[in-house]
């Protein structure tokens, strides 16, 4: 039963991350997602101090706020101080992450967070943290409900915002000209990213959550040219990664989240090499084919047309 719980929680989180991540990579904001996932740490610590527990409403709010502040700061340094984007990202997230670690050390007694958990989480403990109702009824792991809630939120957000996200992603000038607020959808997306990061934080940590955001989405980006099928494929891949990753981890007795992210890396490698539309292997074959066709054409031209 524990296996199923872990795989289920991992899949639900990675599907949420993958769906949002698809938009992140299309908007060329993968590293902003990375920055947010690190920078929510001080928000988590502060919310922990206020609410005294890990899974609380304050936590989500605190983290979403920090995520928005992060993306605002990146934009601010870039626009107002003329700092190049990559440097603005690098400076902002390392600073906030350092702040988070310092806060953890200051309040070491009061905050039940350690540095390892921050970096790669521990999804194996999911089945231990049960939700038991006041009547003593065992409802199963808490994380299951959290992950299901987050996925529902992401799906609602995407089904309402799909058209707007689509248009602001692919043609922001047109979106602006028909009166869609680009900034609003940017910050809404960032808010969702931070919320999902925080919810998944306990299970997968700050760095591996980036893998969930980026890798399945990038893999399906190489496999299709349509946004809808890209999203569907991301969902499928996210589930597959969680399933196979779990068994990889139990085989070599290592971190489950690490194994899930590694599995997704393998799928990416396969798509990168063999994708029927963009794989480099296919491209190389096509190029050879074109070359041989071209050379015979030029020979023909040389002989008969000149």
């Amino acid at each position: 039963m524990d296996d199923i719980y872990i795989i289920l929680v991992a899949s639900l989180f990675s599907i949420s991350c993958g769906l949002l991540g698809s938009f992140l990579i299309l908007r060329r904001m993968a590293m902003v997602g990375d920055a947010i996932s690190h920078a929510v740490l001080p928000g988590i610590v502060i919310a922990f101090l206020i609410s005294g527990s890990r899974d609380s409403f304050e936590m989500i709010i605190g983290a979403a706020l920090l995520g928005l502040i992060t993306s605002f700061l990146i934009e601010f340094f870039h626009k107002k101080a003329n700092l190049q984007t990559d440097a603005a990202i690098g400076v902002t997230f390392t600073w906030l992450f350092a702040l988070g670690i310092i806060l953890i050390s200051v309040f070491a007694g009061q905050v039940d967070l350690d540095q390892e958990c921050v970096l790669y989480g521990e999804i194996a403990y999911v089945p231990l943290d049960l939700w038991i109702t006041d009547a003593g009824l065992n409802m199963g792991p808490k994380a299951l409900y959290v992950s299901a809630f987050i996925l529902a939120a992401v799906i609602i957000f995407l089904s309402f915002g799909y058209r707007y996200l689509h248009i602001t992603t692919f043609d922001s000038a047109f979106a602006a000209s028909i009166g869609i607020s680009i900034g609003l959808w940017h910050y809404l997306l960032m808010g969702m990213v931070s919320m999902t990061t925080v919810a998944a934080f306990d299970s997968v940590g700050a760095i591996l959550v980036v893998a969930l955001f980026v890798v399945p989405a990038a893999t399906s980006y190489l496999l299709t040219r349509k946004l809808k099928s890209m999203l569907l494929m991301t969902v499928l891949l996210s589930f597959l990664n969680s399933f196979l990753g779990y068994y990889l981890a139990s085989t070599i007795n290592g971190s489950i989240s690490g194994a899930i992210a590694s599995t997704s890396g393998v799928f990416f490698l396969l798509a990168f090499l063999f994708s029927p539309i963009d794989g480099i292997w296919i491209k190389a074959i096509k190029r050879n084919f074109d070359k041989s066709k071209n050379t015979s054409k030029t020979k023909f031209n040389k002989i008969f047309k000149e």
Binding site: D34, L119, Y120, I207, L208, V210, A211, V214, V215, G254, S255, S257, G258, A259, I260, A261, S262, S264, G265, F268
Partner: peptide
């Protein structure tokens, strides 16, 4: 993220 995951 993938190389870090492999490392972890």
């Amino acid at each position: 993220s993938v190389s870090f995951a492999i490392g972890i």
